[in-house]
Design a protein around this nucleic acid. Sequence first.
RNA 1: GUGGGUGUAGUUCAGCGGUAGAGCACCGGAUUGUGGUUCCGGCUGUCGCGGGUUCAAAUCCCGUCAUCCACCCCA
Length: 422
Amino acid sequence: MKKYKVPRGTFDILPEESFKWQYITKTFRQTTQLFNYREIVTPIFENSEIFERSVGDTSDIVEKEMYKFQDKKGRELALRPEGTAPVVRSFVENGLHLKPNSAKLYYLGPMFRYDRPQKGRYRQFYQYGIENIGSENPFIDAEVIAFAFHFLKELGLQNFELQINSIGCENCTKEYDIALKKYFSKHLNELCSDCKTRLEKNPKRVLDCKVKNCKTIAKDAPSMLDYLDEDCKTHFSAIQKYLSEMQIPFVINPKIVRGLDYYAQTAFEIIDTNLGAQNTLIGGGRYSKLVQQLGGANISGIGFAGGFERLLLSLENENIIFGMEQKPEVYFVNLGENTKYESVKIISNLRKNGISCEFNPDKISMNAQMKEANKKGVKFCLILGENELKNNEIILKNMFTSEQQNVKRDKIIEAIITSKKS
RNA sequence: GUGGGUGUAGUUCAGCGGUAGAGCACCGGAUUGUGGUUCCGGCUGUCGCGGGUUCAAAUCCCGUCAUCCACCCCA
């Protein structure tokens, strides 16, 4: 028989793991309530153009990482590689800027990129994210960052660092790129080959290079922050002031360069320094032209996205206690043939009364049933045998204390409820 | 797309030319109406796949696929 495996870069979330994912989802949803964000659910696939237009057709995501396909009518579609563009598409398509309470949106779900898998990076990966569309007020920037910060704290995470930067608007970038090119061309021979091409395509990327030589050269490169115009400068310092007032610690990292084309001004990352190469927990930033690019009004937005897989790695590193795996409350032990119809009746009645109950008809001996009850970690066993059937009773055993009592069968529910409290 | 490590039981791994092994997990029994601890017994494999070398390959060689880590990129 042929054995099948999950496709490369994908994975199953098994029952023994899934409660951890639920914990993250639950905590995220709680945070959305606190900040009053509402869920938006968009399709898993979109017209390819939406990403090509917004993310930037020279970006790696569009150039080589998109799962593109044609449907039977020849439509060019793509599995979504990220969440912002679809949300903005929907925002524009449905005229959400005219609807009340629709500027603050959150989403959850799988994204797809044809990357080479490695630690913390998969081809199908799960993201949570928020978008706040319609305001340029720096308070919103600070609030979006505060959301991310609050969420991680709420999960119980300790070791992470918030890094912020402003990459300026179009005007600032123009001058800055010229300055960077001028600086780096003096050191052209010392740069790695990747950086030589970066210098042409997107000189800011050189700042991000991890090659030692490039790093040392980049150290003395002109800083973006010195090239911000007045508007961007005041915007950026306002954010810092707000963050300080909210007691959110941050460091300014002028080397943060968001990879996607649509970013402008605010860029931020939250990283976990003991995670490995893929250590960005959350990445976000402001986009000023994206809404317009996708056919909407000339309004700006800001958002972030984070990956579940990396978050899970961090949480496990820090031994965060997740929610508990679900357990049944009662394990039902049936002894023999004559009692089985009465057993079925009782089990059904328990569930009607909201008491979760497990029963295994394939286990015959009492020993085997008790063993399984123990393995499942239930607090109670209900035991029904010939004697109890005759006396109209049943045994209720507390597995934690080993105490047991005979109770009348019409008093089972009450007996369990009172024992639950003790 | 590039480089390196690793593929053996459900799982973690040992074996590294001569009849496929251990721990954990699972199942059963000791206890035929009472679990956890203990003891006893049992189950499972195209040794990732294809080819080559050899009297003989899990073991050596080549290819391939998968996986992990790193580059790249990013969540």
